[in-house]
Amino acid sequence: MSLFPRKMRVGAGVALALIAMLVLAASGTKGLASDDAATNAPAGSHDVKTPKRQAWSFYGPFGKFDQAQLQRGLQVFREVCATCHSLKSIAFRDLAAPGGPDFSEAQAKALAADYKIKDGPNDAGDMFERPGRLSDYFPWNFPNAQAARAAFGALPPDLSVIAKARTYHRGFPLFLVDPIIQYQEHGADYIYALLTGYARSEDPNWNEYFPGHKIAMPNPLSDGAVDYADGSPKTVRQYAKDVSAFLMWTAEPKLEERKAIGFRVLVFLCVFAGLLYFVKRKIWARVHDDAGGTH
């Protein structure tokens, strides 16, 4: 006879598995992704490469954004992406909100004031321009989608939730593993791969990760294009990494809060379920005893 009844061992097994899953996810992508370019996927009919998983600070149950990285990513967005793309859902006040790039309110105000915001009508019935305020949203360089389409031949998508709107195929059986190891960063990995995937210098619209390879967006990044103040490498890879992280934040600004609450909820539920289990055993023990104790 073993020391514990069968059901208790099952319960302990489930608890251990849960802890193992948390540890697995928490231990992150350490052994996983180097900054190297991706592997060639057995992609069947298309020879499109599969993005490679990158190490992200926001991965896993205790993941958090790297504030310095988000600030660099914002810089890349403002100096490169914003030439064409909008970021409709992000307000300047978000830059100073917890769990984000961690600007002070004064910094966010100053940043907002750099932008001219169209407002109005005023008392005279005229529209006017004024400096941006915290409550304003990132303005776009184009008055409407048609104007952008006329300028580029295609509409540059809004980037607010792009990190959740893009993904790549994981295939069987990896798609079953993803929820267990908490892999949710397909979008960030895809954006990083795309931005580093302009592999043919003679064709700026050829990308090894884009389905069909011909992407309307020509290679937007080049080494040294953005002048980082914090001494980070001024390379395409670093820019791509930072802006991908930034776009994950714009897509999921409550990520840190979500994971922090989630851990507390899980701890509570595990303790609660454990207590309920022992209450249940105690109550049911009466029946088993009455019946002659066959358990």
Partner: peptide
């Protein structure tokens, strides 16, 4: 309670 643990995993860790 056990089902809610499963449910919470999705809500908080892999919501999408």
């Amino acid at each position: 309670a056990c089902f809610l643990i499963f449910f919470s995993w999705f809500i908080f860790y892999v919501p999408n």
